[in-house]
Every structure is written in structure tokens, then in C-alpha cells.
Design a protein around this nucleic acid. Structure first.
Lengths: 205, 205
DNA sequence: ACAAATTTGTAGTAATCATTATATAAATGT
DNA sequence: ACATTTATATAATGATTACTACAAATTTGT
């Protein structure tokens, strides 16, 4: 039984959907640019309910970051992990980064963490730590896929998984920054083939 | 004659130094996070004088972005351009990006454009265009140095200057993002040698 | 010395901000 | 049926926001 009857008037909103709406508002406008009015309207939650459920604005922001950062379904990562062929997987990752950062349904460009949260890392307590953790987690998640390709035999034994994971992730920042700046999909896609080769290249030479 | 006597009470501030102080405040706090009180205090300019000199907050922001983006003395670029040996030049660029984004005198981490301005590109009119222009200008400025190395003979004739310029710039975004998230200098420096080789590598194989 | 011009410093404006007090509505338990 | 519990809706709170009116201060020109 997941739905156990509770006393009192039932909530009008779903916690997780409301939180994702908050992510979209913060993504589009940033922490300081997003007003509580923006948030309550987008989330469909009245101020008193919002404060009861999520605490104050800062706490809601931290929860939004955490929700976004711990999203296993992040499409570029999923694309990278679900494609069996490692070369196609790397290509799918880069492709999906471009699609994701230019065509998100909320209208926000780039990536919530690197295009919006980064700004508040200088001032808002706790944000920098959340960001750092998200980066390290993603580095490891990317490296894991490379490690699997190594044990499976499609990548050579001395392939530097973590180093190339960081490379992929850093290239990603470039793409999302360009997306936020309004660069065209076409202009960003021109370098993909070359970058796939680089990421998988043997640099012992 | 640069200093011509003007009637009226003289200004107490230097326009350009005040503008650079504004850059630092916006860099640290973002557009919405920076209050006019923050700005007037840091710039040493009273509100009426500020409005007379720079217009409203939005116009000051645009001027600050323009001042920062058109700074020929950007230390990573200068390092890249002034080192004669192309391999050392690439290494100097990456090194300087790390130093710049972690040790800036204002206390702000990362890069003003990618760590702060990017947030406002979603909402504030004109910012996205300024960003895009800055990216394209930097891409070309980096490519120019590669072209010079080609004509001078230290890089092969078919070296793809603009493609590698974009690569360098995108890798830079990764570094400044990590810096903003509080990653250590040491952790970021580990990949430099490998990345230098990649940027200069021959990918015809 | 005095008028004209321009900036400074202070104190204010109206609007918006995050947050909360109050009252009403909708569920369950007995 | 009625008390208890929880969430809702509205409106108000004090603080802060961007911005400006006003008077004093400091320069040049005559």
C-alpha cells in the first residue's frame, strides 16, 4: 500500500512535480531573479503551503539543486550508458548534450547547474558544496561506463577512464555555455566527430 | 591635450576603475544578486552620480559585460599569445585559466561571463547577444595564434586552427566551472599535459 | 567677487520582495 | 454529527529594492 489515508485536507500538488517546476524557474531566472511569486505560480502552490512543504526560498533552492543533480534520468548520461557500442555512446552523449541544452521543454537553455547555479555558488551558503559533489559524481558515472567497456574488451586495458571522463564533462560545459549564449545547434555539431576520436584516442604516441 | 578643464565640480571617481569594480560585484553576486547599494559602495560612486554616468542598473550591467569582454589583457589569452613556443603557449593558457579562475583578486571564482552572466542570458535583454559575440571573438583570437604558428612553420599546414580553438575554449569552460564549484587547483592541473597533447595532436590517423 | 555649471551627499519615493497571520475548506476518526 | 487535523486562499507584514528630489559643495569664466 503506497497510498495510506491521512487525516486533514489533502494536498493539491504533487511534491516532486512542484519541485521540478521550481527547478525550471530557478534555471530560467537564477536564484535571485526568481521571485516567490514566480515560484508559487509555476509550482501551483500557495505561499503558506510552499513554506510548509519546502521551507524558505533558500531551502527550496537547495532541494531543487539536489533534485536536479540526483536525476538518474539525465538524458545525456542515459544516452551514454545505454548505447552498447562505446564510440556510438560517446557520440550519443555529445549529441544529447546539444539537444538537451537547446531544446529543453521549459524553455531554459544550457544546464541548470552550470548555467544558473554556478552564479550563486559565490554567495549562497551550501551551494558550492552541492555543485562540487555533483561534478565528482558525474565524473565517476562517466568513468564507470569506460571501465565497463574495458572489462568487456572494447577499450584497451590502459585506457584512462577517469581522465577521459573529466575531458568529456569539461567539453560538455563548453557546449552548454554556447547553448546558453544562443549558438546554433548546427555550429555546435560540426566538431562532434573529431571530439569523439579525441576522447577515445590512444595518446601513448 | 587629454585633460581639458571643465566647468563644474569635478568627479570624484574614475569611470573605468568604477566600471571594473562593478564587474567584480556582478561577477560575485550576479545581476539580480547585486544591489545598487552593493554597487555604489564598491564603486565609490553615489547613486545620483552613478545614474548620471552609467544610466540604470541594466545599462551598467551591459557596460560591465562589454568592458570585461573587450579586455585585451585577459591573462589566459595574453599568456597564450605571448609565449613563442606553441606547445608552451597552450600549456600556459590552460595553466593561466586555472590560476585566473581560482585566485582572482576580487575573490570571485570562475569567469564573469560563463559563471555569472550566463545566468542572466535567459532573461535580460541583450545579454545573450553580448555573450555570443564574446565567444566568437575569443574563438577567433585563439585561432589566430594557431594560424601564426602555421605560417611560421611550428605547426603543420593542415592544422585545424578554428576547430582546436573551439576545443581549447570549451575545455576552459570546464575548468572555470570546476573553479566556481571550489575544486582544487591541484585536481585541475593533473590533466594539463594530456590536454596539451590533445589540442596539438594530429588526428589524421 | 559673483554667476553659471556640474557633482556630491542625504533623504526620500513608490514598488516589490520574502514571509506570515487569519480564516475557510476538506479530509478522517469516533 | 461533530471534533480533530491538515491544507487552502487572501491579504497583510516589515524589509529591501531601484531610483530620484533637493540642497550643499566645488569647479570655471568673466
Amino acid at each position: 500500500m503506497t497510498t495510506l489515508k491521512k487525516v486533514g485536507r489533502p494536498k493539491k500538488f504533487d511534491r516532486d512535480t512542484a519541485l521540478m517546476s521550481a527547478v525550471n524557474v530557478f534555471w530560467l531566472k537564477g536564484f535571485d531573479g526568481a521571485s516567490m511569486t514566480d515560484l508559487t505560480e509555476a509550482m501551483g502552490v500557495n505561499p503558506p503551503s510552499l513554506y510548509a512543504e519546502f521551507g524558505d526560498k533558500l531551502n527550496l533552492y537547495r532541494l531543487a539543486i539536489d533534485r536536479y543533480a540526483s536525476n538518474d534520468a539525465c538524458s545525456p548520461l542515459v544516452a551514454f550508458e545505454s548505447e552498447p557500442d562505446i564510440e556510438k555512446a560517446v557520440r550519443a552523449f555529445l549529441n544529447e548534450v546539444i539537444v538537451y541544452s537547446t531544446k529543453h521543454s521549459s524553455g531554459a537553455k544550457g544546464c541548470f547547474l552550470s548555467s544558473s547555479v554556478a552564479t550563486s555558488a559565490g554567495e549562497i551558503e551550501g551551494v558550492q558544496e552541492l555543485l562540487k559533489k555533483a561534478i565528482e559524481t558525474t565524473d565517476r558515472r562517466l568513468a564507470k561506463r569506460f571501465d565497463e567497456a574495458k572489462t568487456e574488451g572494447s577499450l584497451r586495458k590502459d585506457f584512462p577512464s577517469l581522465e577521459r571522463a573529466r575531458l568529456m564533462f569539461d567539453l560538455r560545459q563548453g557546449l552548454v555555455f554556447r547553448a546558453r549564449a544562443g549558438c546554433s545547434v548546427k555550429s555546435m555539431k560540426t566538431d562532434i566527430d573529431q571530439r569523439v576520436r579525441m576522447i577515445l584516442s590512444d595518446q601513448s604516441s
